[in-house]
Computed example of a mutant assay.
Amino acid sequence: MAVFKELSKVLTPILKTMGFSKKGNSFYLKVGKNYGVINLQKSRESEKDIIKFTINFGVYSDVLGQLQYGYNSSAKPGIEQCHWGARVGEFMPRSPDYWWYFNASDNLSSLTSNVMEAV
């Protein structure tokens, strides 16, 4: 678990320079009242020493949100509330669903570079 939190900590300043803010396991880019979302999703198959995770992308439209029941323009949307979404694997050749595996003895810097290249 600590490995996953450590990855999130390392990614935070990098994504912050791109205009993203962080809440939980998601990073938000606000444009007007719309949001771009990058979400780190840890798999239920993760174990204490080996973390399995993927990245979800989402776009939330304020205009479409106003048409939905339960609209709250003051709250950041969760990845599941986005009007468009995709997993990182959809943008990778021959990888419709891509997951990283990482353990405490792996090189965090190398993983961070790999994740940022994918983002």
Score class of each variant (00 low, 15 high):
residue 25 N to Y: 12
residue 32 G to K: 15
residue 81 Q to M: 10
residue 63 V to P: 00
residue 75 A to T: 03
residue 23 K to S: 15
residue 14 I to N: 10
residue 63 V to H: 11
residue 68 Q to W: 00
residue 76 K to F: 06
residue 58 G to I: 05
residue 16 K to N: 15
residue 111 L to Y: 03
residue 12 T to Q: 14
residue 91 F to N: 02
residue 35 Y to R: 10
residue 45 E to C: 04
residue 78 G to S: 13
residue 86 A to D: 03
residue 20 F to W: 10
residue 26 S to A: 15
residue 105 S to V: 06
residue 14 I to M: 11
residue 78 G to W: 03
residue 56 N to L: 10
residue 113 S to C: 02
residue 62 D to N: 15
residue 42 K to L: 10
residue 37 V to R: 06
residue 20 F to P: 07
residue 43 S to I: 08
residue 91 F to E: 00
residue 67 L to E: 13
residue 76 K to A: 07
residue 105 S to E: 11
residue 63 V to K: 15
residue 25 N to E: 13
residue 115 V to C: 04
residue 12 T to H: 12
residue 97 D to G: 00
residue 50 I to A: 05
residue 105 S to M: 01
residue 108 L to G: 00
residue 39 N to A: 13
residue 39 N to K: 06
residue 105 S to C: 00
residue 22 K to C: 06
residue 76 K to N: 09
residue 37 V to Q: 08
residue 41 Q to I: 12
residue 58 G to K: 06
residue 52 K to G: 03
residue 54 T to S: 15
residue 17 T to A: 09
residue 54 T to C: 13
residue 30 K to R: 15
residue 14 I to R: 14
residue 33 K to V: 05
residue 29 L to A: 09
residue 77 P to G: 04
residue 71 Y to C: 04
residue 27 F to A: 07
residue 22 K to S: 14
residue 65 G to I: 07
residue 92 M to R: 08
residue 26 S to G: 10
residue 110 S to Y: 01
residue 12 T to L: 07
residue 44 R to N: 15
residue 109 S to H: 05
residue 34 N to P: 09
residue 102 F to A: 00
residue 31 V to I: 14
residue 12 T to S: 13
residue 32 G to R: 13
residue 61 S to R: 05
residue 58 G to R: 05
residue 47 E to R: 15
residue 23 K to P: 00
residue 94 R to S: 06
residue 99 W to G: 00
residue 100 W to H: 06
residue 50 I to N: 11
residue 56 N to D: 12
residue 94 R to A: 05
residue 12 T to A: 15
residue 87 R to N: 12
residue 38 I to K: 14
residue 90 E to V: 02
residue 12 T to P: 01
